[in-house]
Amino acid sequence: MEEYGFSGIVISLQFKNNIIREYITCSIDSGDGRFSSLCTIVYALNQMTSRRILWRDLLTFKYNVNGSWIIGGDFNAITSYDEKIGGVPVSDADIEDFQSFITISQLLHIRSIGCYFTWNNKQDVETRIWSRLDRCLVNEDWIHLYTTSQVEYLLPSCSDNSPALLIIEDDDDIEGKGLFKFFNMWVKHPDFISTVKSIWEQNIEGYKMYSFHSKLKKLKHALKELNKKHFMNINEQVLRSKDDLADIQRLLSEDLFNLGLIVREKECIKKYDRLLDCESSYKQKANISWSLERDKGSKFFYSIMKKKRHLNRILTLYTESGTRISDRSGIITKIVDYYKKLLGNSVSTT
């Protein structure tokens, strides 16, 4: 174990002797205690057999990780055909093998900007190869702790690979309101109609469009309260409802024509079906297709939702002249100036 410290960051490196590995892991902790994570740097070999050993080792390591973890570097593999131009075509087996590793490990790509192709062989036009070999993957704990993070792949300069700049913003410092999204599950709740009616029947003075806009704003807050009151921790509600139904059916199996148990079974089935419908609405929220039903409602599932919810945040901006802006005030000023220039200035109508 060796430790290095700089700029308030402490890095602990763990080395294993007499073993040739394609990755190295370190622990990174900030001096102010606001950041702490395991970080694994990968440099995969060219042979698929060697990479399979690497995938296996990383999976074994992942199952022993408690806390946030980021893994990045040159994986020497791609996830789709559009991640390579030139050279010998990549085989289906290579792509499927890497995709399978990412799926099984339940690691997520963090948002990336900058150079799409992170590697090239620096050769002439006829033999030039471009490929996206570098990437950063994170576990669900990273998503929950450091949602507002991204990796920027910079210009490669003299290297074959683009350097990766990891940017992590503090969620507490992010200003602005989240987008409002309507969920179909609300419509099936018995309080939905009365909630909408109570808002829509209010008398609001002013122009029709002002009245319409005001009611929509009030309805948004009312529906958020409805969601908070009845649909929070939906996965736990589904599990409890399933257990309640199983308990009733066990009792009913010993008393087949018990009227009270039959009525309670119907009520439990109705509640369980309703909660399952609500849970499936989170699929709508995540906007993702799930191949495995066991993922629905899991911690990994909610990590996907949180990751997608923050994709619209801008952490880095380049001006027309190529100047890089990363401070929040500068980004806001540049965006406002752009739209002022685009939309023009207000003029007097008198």
Rank of each mutant, 00 (worst) to 15 (best):
Q47V: 08
T79H: 05
K271Y: 03
C278H: 00
G330W: 05
R111P: 12
I71D: 00
I325Q: 12
L216C: 06
I234N: 00
N46M: 04
P163T: 06
L59V: 03
E201N: 15
S149T: 10
D255W: 03
G206D: 02
C158S: 15
S329H: 11
V263G: 00
A77Y: 00
C158F: 15
Y81G: 00
A164P: 09
Y43D: 03
K84N: 02
I248W: 02
I85K: 14
S50W: 07
W130G: 04
K296G: 06
N161E: 05
V347R: 10
L223E: 10
L133F: 07
Q106C: 11
N161I: 07
L223P: 10
I104F: 12
D82W: 04
C26S: 12
G176S: 03
R328Q: 09
W290V: 11
A286M: 12
A164H: 03
V238W: 03
N139S: 05
S291P: 04
Q99V: 01
K228Y: 08
Q47S: 13
D173C: 02
I110W: 04
Q106Y: 08
T40I: 00
R324H: 12
Y63C: 07
R111T: 15
N64L: 03
V125M: 09
E175W: 00
K62A: 05
G260P: 00
K84R: 10
A246E: 14
G178I: 01
E267N: 09
S326F: 14
K299G: 07
K283V: 14
L58R: 01
F61G: 01
K266N: 10
I304F: 13
W55H: 04
Y63M: 09
L342V: 06
I269L: 07
Y210N: 09
Y43W: 03
C39S: 09
K181R: 15
T349F: 13
A93I: 08
D337Y: 02
L155W: 13
R324W: 12
S159D: 14
W119T: 05
E201Q: 14
S291F: 09
L216Y: 04
K270C: 06
G206Q: 03
I41R: 01
F180D: 06
T333H: 08
E2N: 10
G330D: 11
D74V: 01
G73C: 00
K242D: 13
H144D: 14
L259F: 07
L245D: 04
T323N: 15
Q123S: 11
I193M: 10
E96N: 12
Y43G: 02
T148R: 12
E205V: 09
S303D: 09
T319I: 07
V238E: 04
I168G: 02
